[in-house]
């Protein structure tokens, strides 16, 4: 949580990003899935931006779009810039793993046939990988012998540390952590979150993708709330408090009020599928404030009280 977070220029800026996939439905009949529509996000050095939303809302696809590792049937439009310059596919390939690193969701992302020490050394760009890897392993309390182990020999918590170590060993200035804490024991979650904070304190920008809003609030400076493939709101973490009255979008409020420690109150219905998105606001069918306007026109992105929101009714 760096004090300089708001003064620097954004390291990564995503504007109007849309991603769709073409699939064969039956025979030669094709259909298009709109996975991300008209998404805006930005992140500054030393800042942790949490991206929070339901499963199937397109969070991981955003990560893959930034890294340029979407499959071949993806159509991408909109613009992304990194350190002030446009992020083209060629530049993505050059920056991936060096300037932009991924902490993946699953331990399955480790190479099962390579000792974990070697895998971490790969991230170091110049000569002295071994010394750096040992130093990072010490810092993450991985015993000296760990570097010679294979992924299947690690416990869940150790594997998690190795995944974070891989990103920490790289000189990356932008780190994307995609659900790094799924179903883990609270102690390991806490430790992983502490590591993310360390990385940001060292001046790196961290994008923390999660469905766990508690973990997001504990760690992040700002929260981007995802719904059906777009960011409905970006708010300072401190706005998630009380009854949620400082939040700008009805879905963010619903997310906050649905927590067990708050009202545990659900919203009827379900998130629309990417295959059949309607025009207008994507949350409108489940929204109490919904009017005719919401069903017909997609709300524009507006800046309100130090955050951004896509809602006709936000004030």
């Amino acid at each position: 949580m760096s004090a300089t977070a708001n003064t620097d220029k954004p390291l990564l800026e995503v504007s109007g990003l849309s991603v769709s996939f073409i699939q064969y439905a039956a025979g030669l009949r094709q259909r298009t899935f709109q996975a991300i529509s008209n998404l805006n996000a930005d992140i500054r050095p030393g800042e942790i931006l949490a991206v929070v939303g339901a499963s199937g809302s397109g969070k991981s696809i955003l990560a893959h779009a930034i890294l340029g590792i979407l499959p071949g049937n993806a159509l991408v439009s909109g613009s992304m810039s990194y350190a002030g310059q446009e992020l083209t596919p060629k530049r993505q390939a050059a920056l991936r793993g060096r300037e932009i690193a991924l902490i993946p969701q699953s331990v399955n992302f480790l190479d099962p046939l390579m000792r974990v020490g070697t895998q971490v050394r790969f991230s170091s760009p110049n000569g002295n990988g071994t010394a750096m890897q040992r130093e990072i392993f010490t810092r993450y309390q991985l015993a000296a012998g760990t570097e010679r182990l294979y992924p299947f020999q690690l416990s869940g918590g150790m594997a998690r540390r190795v995944l974070v170590a891989t990103a920490a060993a790289s000189p990356a200035r932008l780190i994307i952590a995609d659900e790094p804490t799924p179903g883990l024991h609270p102690a390991i979650v806490k430790e992983t979150l502490a590591h993310l904070r360390e990385l940001s304190a060292a001046g790196r920008a961290v994008m923390f993708i999660t469905h766990d809003i508690n973990a997001a609030l504990e760690t992040a400076d700002r929260i981007a709330v995802f719904y059906a493939g777009t960011t409905v709101e970006t708010a300072p973490a401190g706005d998630f408090c009380g009854e949620g009255e400082r939040l700008r979008h009805p879905y963010s409020k619903a997310l906050w009020q649905a927590l067990p420690q708050n009202d545990f109150r659900p919203v009827p219905g379900s998130q629309p599928s990417p295959a059949d998105l309607l025009p207008g606001c994507l949350f409108a069918p489940r929204c109490r404030l919904s009017t005719l306007e919401c069903a017909s026109a997609e709300p524009a992105l507006r800046s309100i009280r130090g955050g951004t929101v896509r809602c006709h009714h936000a004030a």
Binding site: V52, G53, A54, S55, P182, G183, L184, H185, P186, V189, H211, I213, Y251, A254, L255, W256, A258, L259, P260, F264, R265, P266, V267, P268, S270
Partner: peptide, 30 residues
């Protein structure tokens, strides 16, 4: 593995039905 809104939605349905039919529940959670 679910977001808070879906979690509340599923649990509220389960709790309502369990209350009506006196179903006993054992739950594990972190």
């Amino acid at each position: 593995m679910l977001d808070a809104v879906t979690q509340a939605q599923i649990w509220q349905a389960v709790l309502r039905l369990a209350g009506e039919r006196r179903i006993g529940i054992l739950l594990t959670s972190h």
